[in-house]
């Protein structure tokens, strides 16, 4: 199969899945009577509709090429950082540091991917941004809660800029025998992460009994994680043909993606709650904000990127 044929099959499969989900939502809405149940069904429908929009945006970006994909992820990073810092208390003295985070660090980080400069891409934020941002805050001469303020900004930039940028960075990996197909690898990561989220949610709703971390995230259950996670690994394994991985390796890598995605959701939920919020924002109806959809991607992307880099790039 040519890369384009693989792409068409993949998108076709997702469209079929979403059509099924839309039909289920339609049928459920007619059958459900209880108020609580109706609320769940309406939320389900909103989520499915948002998925249609997201799949549409991604398909167009992929067809337009790598530059559009990189710009799309830069924009997502920007919106996610905006959500993160809106909820995080900052001081007027951090104004310059915040400005630089949005309008210097994001463009430079994504430009380094466009430029395919791997060495700079991996160190720019952990080294240069890490040293520059607190310097800007220090020049504003306010020592009140200085370490907390600096840590919050740095952490936000790490998670929503650095980690997220590893998704489009998959485009610059030079994998022998896989040239020109890297966009499929990117889709593979997003597919496994998101389907794992969805299946864990569905399995949790159907069979969930034992909560894993009720304080942090009341919707996560052992049953949801085990059954949903297993199904997601199954999907990831079945999709081996769009990747450079053999089926057994696809299974192992999917398992890592599922675990990292789960941890990402858990950690970001803890951060969100420590900031006193239930959702990160309200951009994507039914889901919450951009960060509510990206949380698991943040943790899965860098690990996936480096596994592929270590095992498949000579």
């Amino acid at each position: 199969m040519t890369p384009m044929e693989k792409f068409v099959w993949l998108i076709g499969g997702i469209v079929a899945l979403l059509t099924l989900a839309s039909l289920i939502g339609f049928v459920l809405k007619r059958r459900v009577r209880s108020e609580n149940g109706l609320e769940t069904v309406l939320n389900l429908q909103q989520r499915v509709n948002a998925w249609w929009v997201m799949i549409g945006i991604f398909s167009i970006a992929f067809l337009l090429g790598p530059t559009t994909t990189i710009v799309l992820f830069a924009l997502m990073s920007y919106l996610a950082l905006r959500e993160f810092l809106t909820l995080t208390p900052t001081s007027p003295n951090d104004h310059r540091a915040l400005f630089v985070a949005f309008f210097v660090i994001i463009p430079v980080q994504f430009w380094s991917i466009y430029d395919a400069w791997y060495g700079f891409f991996t160190i720019f934020i952990p080294v240069y941004a890490f040293l520059l941002l607190p310097s800007l805050s220090a020049l504003a001469q306010n020592t009140d809660q200085f370490l907390e303020r600096t840590a919050k900004i740095q952490w936000g930039v790490m998670v929503v800029v650095y980690c997220v940028s590893h998704v489009p960075a998959l485009l610059i990996l030079d994998i022998p025998g896989f040239t020109g197909q890297n966009a499929l690898l990117l889709l593979y990561l997003l597919l496994v992460v998101q389907i794992s989220d969805v299946l864990q949610y569905v399995c949790g709703k159907l069979w969930g009994k034992h909560k894993i971390a009720p304080v942090v995230s009341p919707s996560k259950t052992v049953e949801g994680l085990v059954f949903g996670g297993a199904l997601a690994v199954g999907v990831g394994t079945a999709m081996w043909w769009i990747t450079p991985f053999a089926p057994a390796y696809a299974a192992a890598i999917s398992l890592v993606i599922v675990i990292m995605g789960f941890l990402g959701g858990l950690v970001m939920s803890a951060v969100k709650r420590s900031l006193g919020a239930k959702d990160w924002g309200s951009m994507i109806s039914g889901h919450g904000g951009m960060m509510d959809r990206l949380d698991s991607v943040c943790f899965a992307a860098p690990v996936f990127f480096h596994l592929v880099h270590y095992f498949y790039v000579p």
Binding site: Y78, R82, L85, T86, P92, H95, L98, F102, G281
Partner: peptide, 9 residues
């Protein structure tokens, strides 16, 4: 006192 805005919702 700030010249340029920082994007927050």
């Amino acid at each position: 006192g700030a010249l340029l805005p920082v994007p927050l919702i």
